[in-house]
Computed example of a mutant assay.
Amino acid sequence: MPVNVKDVMTQRVISVGENTRFKNIAELLVTHAVSAVPVVDSDGHVTGVVSEADLLHKEEGRERFHRENCPPPQTRPDQGPEADKARGKIARELMTAPAVTVSMDASVATASRLMEHHGVKRLPVLDGHGHLAGIVSRHDLLKVFARSDRDIEREVRVDVLVRSLWMDTSRVQVAVQDGVVTLSGRMILQRDTQIAVWMIRQVDGVVDVVDELAWDRDDTPAGGRD
């Protein structure tokens, strides 16, 4: 079965309230060796994330906006989000908002795409009520590739070929080594071989698919050869 975020997420989450002070946040990051913490309101909803970058941005901003040789106040660029964050003292003022979150029932592929699109390394995970349920990191997502070859082979044979595609697999051989699935033997239709390969590529933990299948009849629009 497909692996969802809830299957790989870390349930024990280090989070902070909106009024948590800068120093306390920094201590949490250092003590727990994490690079970011979700910020939650009094109802348990995630309102933002404070990262190492956010805290360092404050220090950078302090130097930029308050060094001795800075321009006079009337010309100093002390307005806008950067300046606000540089003056921030509590989580609500320091955090990056809104937070990029993911549902605990989302697939690991969805979580991976969100991380890639937003350039983040971890995502707060929400339950069905929108409350913080865990956190998922890039490291967690890599767990799907640690599935045993035996588990992958079973899913390919049972869930993909038989249950999903209703195929007669008596003439099909499935071999899995280090996450690479090799299909050999014959199927009745060429289109069936194409669909099977495509679906197997979507199986969690599959690194690649080697297609060595033959077919009895070419039913593709352009025709072909056996």
Results as ranks from 00 to 15, higher is better:
residue 96 T to N: 12
residue 199 M to I: 10
residue 166 W to D: 12
residue 57 H to V: 05
residue 165 L to T: 13
residue 192 D to S: 13
residue 107 S to R: 15
residue 215 W to Q: 04
residue 165 L to E: 10
residue 88 G to I: 14
residue 224 G to S: 06
residue 107 S to P: 01
residue 59 E to R: 10
residue 24 N to M: 05
residue 10 T to W: 03
residue 72 P to V: 11
residue 105 D to V: 08
residue 111 A to S: 06
residue 26 A to L: 14
residue 172 V to P: 04
residue 3 V to T: 12
residue 223 G to M: 00
residue 214 A to Q: 09
residue 40 V to Y: 01
residue 52 E to H: 03
residue 50 V to G: 03
residue 113 R to P: 01
residue 92 R to T: 02
residue 144 V to F: 11
residue 153 E to M: 14
residue 167 M to F: 07
residue 27 E to Y: 08
residue 121 K to D: 09
residue 127 D to T: 12
residue 26 A to W: 01
residue 141 L to A: 10
residue 81 P to S: 14
residue 105 D to M: 11
residue 161 L to P: 07
residue 165 L to S: 04
residue 131 H to G: 10
residue 90 I to G: 08
residue 114 L to Q: 14
residue 193 T to Y: 07
residue 148 S to M: 06
residue 145 F to M: 12
residue 118 H to D: 13
residue 130 G to R: 01
residue 55 L to F: 02
residue 83 A to D: 05
residue 73 P to H: 03
residue 137 S to E: 05
residue 206 V to W: 05
residue 141 L to Y: 05
residue 43 D to P: 00
residue 25 I to F: 03
residue 64 R to C: 00
residue 60 E to W: 01
residue 98 P to G: 06
residue 30 V to P: 02
residue 101 T to R: 07
residue 140 D to K: 08
residue 202 Q to K: 13
residue 200 I to T: 15
residue 8 V to Q: 09
residue 18 E to D: 10
residue 162 V to E: 15
residue 220 T to A: 00
residue 74 Q to Y: 04
residue 30 V to E: 13
residue 59 E to D: 10
residue 10 T to S: 14
residue 14 I to M: 07
residue 162 V to F: 01
residue 73 P to C: 06
